[in-house]
Structure formats: structure tokens, C-alpha cells
Design a protein around this nucleic acid. Structure first.
Lengths: 245, 245
DNA sequence: TGATATCCTTGATTCAGGTCAAAGAACCGC
DNA sequence: GCGGTTCTTTGACCTGAATCAAGGATATCA
């Protein structure tokens, strides 16, 4: 279990725009101030997990969703046959556990990639709340269909793209997600190991490494170990255009 | 009249169950008779689509989910770059459109693979209904997280499995889904073209064909064109066990 | 500070599955 | 039944990425 940190207001709602305390999610939520307060009471803000620690694990009873506040999380599924697949990387402002919403148990595991602060959203309480606050239900539906669509994008990536395209996609995805958080989109830290990237993209570690160095020599990116120092967003993007048809 | 006693309508009832058009969904739903009646009013039962016809199309306004009653449907997404990926095959008793639930537009298209009867579930009406029938909301949450998990399984399939494993997975999946519908699990009709199978599994058509004939010669399956005549479920299943680790 | 495990890169080799090509088989409208 | 699609199979060949192997780079911890 992650260590508890004292309840603080760092997840404060911005009163101007009516986002909920899940506000990092950047989805507008029109609720009254009163409802907003009740929502805040439910959300249990801030536990900290060290690198490698599990936020939750597959086949354990589902209790909460989790919003990442700092750090980074990877989620994964494991089949009966023992295959292990990373299903996503989650950055601050993103929510994990949606795949298990209203299921008996978690449908996968979530592991901290580095020291991460995570706020817990207990589902039993939220469920009853969402009857009183219709918008909230709507909100979660939206998040879930977003999640389904992410999965479909991933499928497309895994079945139809070359190694270079996969890496380009990942870098661009990270870039735009950092940007959305008002962080530099062409210089950031890769929170995950090459190994994890490889698994996520369905490649061998060696291939990831090779393609990354190839990007370097083509001037598409400057990457030093885990730190991305510059990206040619244009150039990477143009890799994705399939010339045919 | 006294209190209405909630009746448990198991949605796994035979397709002829005339209580609820959603009945094919095979998920237990505990609602009162009255609620069930109202639900039935909302659901618009039975439009028929010919082979190749679109039930809905990507980037058109989302209006309804659809439950397949007979026939078969394929769903697909298309990216800005023009990649086309089939995201699923839907058999009678399954629901499509969940990925777009509460989104502005459909996140993909749905095309009939053969003459299919499909019942429409208009979301605007269902939304207000689900406010009054808590179980219904729960029901849809469940369906959606199921859908996310399907997607994750697909990702795993596409990134980590060999051509043989992919085909085996598909055959086994179809088999168990037919079985759930009280149909023979080892002899059924493949509703989709090799082309579609290939696209779905991330393979070339030729590979699909080759693997299928290899299955024949190994006695794992007897397949004649689009009709599966016999399957060695045991044998196919054992293909999926990854021996390593 | 050095010992040790983990992570990352690079090279050489191999192979599963893609691509190209072409011939049957099934289906459709007339 | 007949010409034209569209679907399916089979063969020959080629390539992108996996695998095997091994040497650097980083991190972790006593």
C-alpha cells in the first residue's frame, strides 16, 4: 500500500471553470457548488506509491478508480496462459481503473513507474453520489468510451504499423499529453523503461533501442537515456501518413 | 395494489423471451415488471440490414446503441491516416455502439456481414430511463467495461501471438459465443470473409488461408469455405498455452 | 566507494509472415 | 447457363523484426 499523505487542497477545483476535482481530466462538469463539495468529500486525496509498487492488482476486488496526480503509472493485463501485456501508461491528470468499473474485480494491474501520488475515488460512494449528480454519471460514461477508443487505437497500432510508426505514435502521444498539462511538448522525461515500451508496443527491446537511435541520426529526436531533449513533431507525424491508397 | 416485488429477469433467457429486447445480452438484470415494460417501449425492435449495409458510420452523430438479433455485424475504426481496422465481430445477443456511449459521434462504423436483424436502443430516451432504473445504468457500465476488456484482449492478441494462435483464438471465441447461444460450438458458419478475418487479426489474407489449411491437415478443424464443420476445441486451446516462463 | 543487478545499445543471424503472382471456386445478376 | 465479380487457395520469394550474444552505461545499496 502506498503511504498516506495528509489531506491537502492541491487538487483544488478551479472555481472559474466548473471542472470537478477530477479536474485534471479536462472534462467539463457542470455541477452546483454544493455538489462539488460533496464530491470532494468522497474523493480520498493522495496516497504515494514508490517505483514498482502496485496501486491495484488483477483479480482483487474492485474498490476504487484512481486519478494520477504526479509520477506515472503503467497498467497491464495477464492472461491465463501467462502472457503479459502493458495496456497503457498514465500520466498526471489521467484516470485508471475504468476498465473495471462496476466489475467484481480489477481487470488488470496498475504499477507505479516512479514515485507517484495518486488520488483514490471510492466507487461505492461515488455510485450513490452519481444518482444525485447526473452529470457525474455522464462524466464517467464519457471517460469509459474514451478508454474504449484508446484501446481501439492501440489495436490499430499493433496490427498495422511498423516499428518506426509505433515509436513515433508513442512519442507523439506522450508529447501531446504533456502539452495538455502545460508542460514542454518536446522535452520531457520518459517515465518507463525500454522494456516497458517494447512490451506496450509489441516489439523487442532491441528494436525499440535501434529505432530510437535511428530517430536520433535522422534528426527526428534527441533522446538521452530516459530524457527526451528534443522532438521533431512535424517529422514524426509525417512518418504516420500511410502513403498508399 | 401493494408493493411491487422486483422480478429478476435473467437476460440469459432464450431469445424468444418477449420481456425485453435487450434480452439477448445475457447479463442478468433485476428490474420490476413495470420497468421492464417501460424499457420495452423505448427499445425499437427490429430493423433489417442487408449485407454490406451500414448500421451506423464513424463521425455521424451518435443516437443509439444496437443489439444484434440475427445475422452478424463487423465494427471498424478508421484513422486520419487512412488505416482501417476491424475492431470486432458481433453475433446475435451482442451490443454495438458502446464505445460511443455518451460521445458526440460514433467512434467507428458498423456494417452488416450478412442479412441481419438489429434492434435499436435510442440513447436519449434510455438515458432518462436509466435515471429511474438504477440497475439499467449498472448494466451499461458492465457492458462497457466488458468492452474495454475485449479491447485489451485484442491488443494482447495482436502484439504477442503468432498467426496460428490468432486464428485459434478467433475460432475458440466464436465457438464459445455460439455455444452461449445454445448453438453447436463445433459446427457453425463463418459470417465474415477471409479478408475481414485477416484485417481483424492483423494478418495478410494469404496467411489466414494458409493457417486454416494447416489446421485442416493437422486435424484441428474441418473448414469448407465459410462453413466450419468440426473443431478440435481441446487441440486449438492447447495451441494457446505459451510454454515459456 | 566499489560490488552487483538492471538497463540500454549494437552486431550477426534467422525466420514468420508479408508481398507478388496466378489459378480455382463461389456467387451474382441477367 | 453464362460472363463477370469477388473470394479463396497455393506457390515462390523477400524483408522487418525477433533472437542470440556480448559489451557499455546507470542505478542501487553495503
Amino acid at each position: 500500500m502506498g503511504e498516506r499523505i495528509p489531506t491537502r487542497h492541491s487538487l483544488a477545483l478551479s472555481p472559474s471553470c466548473n471542472h470537478c476535482s477530477l479536474s485534471n481530466l479536462c472534462l467539463p462538469l457542470a455541477v452546483s457548488d454544493g455538489d462539488m463539495g460533496r464530491l470532494d468529500e468522497v474523493v480520498n486525496r493522495g496516497a504515494v506509491y514508490d517505483r514498482g509498487q502496485a496501486i491495484f492488482q488483477q483479480h482483487t476486488p474492485f474498490r476504487s478508480c484512481y486519478a494520477v496526480r504526479s509520477g506515472a503509472i503503467k497498467t497491464s493485463v495477464e492472461t491465463a496462459e501467462g502472457d503479459y501485456q502493458i495496456t497503457g501508461f498514465y500520466l498526471p491528470g489521467e484516470i485508471i481503473g475504468l476498465d473495471s468499473l462496476h466489475a467484481e474485480e480489477y481487470a488488470g494491474s496498475a504499477i507505479a513507474l516512479e514515485r507517484s501520488s495518486v488520488c483514490e475515488i471510492p466507487m461505492d460512494q461515488l455510485e450513490s453520489l452519481s444518482f444525485e449528480i447526473p452529470t457525474l454519471q455522464h462524466h464517467f460514461f464519457q471517460l469509459m468510451s474514451q478508454e474504449i477508443q484508446n484501446g481501439q487505437q492501440l489495436s490499430l497500432l499493433l496490427s498495422r504499423k511498423t516499428a518506426e510508426e509505433r515509436l513515433a505514435s508513442l512519442l507523439l502521444s506522450l508529447s501531446s499529453r504533456y502539452e495538455r498539462r502545460q508542460m514542454p511538448p518536446t522535452a520531457f522525461r520518459l517515465p518507463m523503461a525500454r522494456n516497458d515500451i517494447a512490451n506496450f508496443l509489441g516489439l523487442a527491446v532491441e528494436t525499440v533501442s535501434r529505432v530510437l537511435t535511428r530517430f536520433q541520426s535522422q534528426g527526428l529526436a534527441t533522446i538521452n537515456g530516459r530524457s527526451v531533449e528534443s522532438l521533431d513533431l512535424e517529422g514524426l507525424h509525417s512518418l504516420l501518413q500511410s502513403p498508399g491508397t
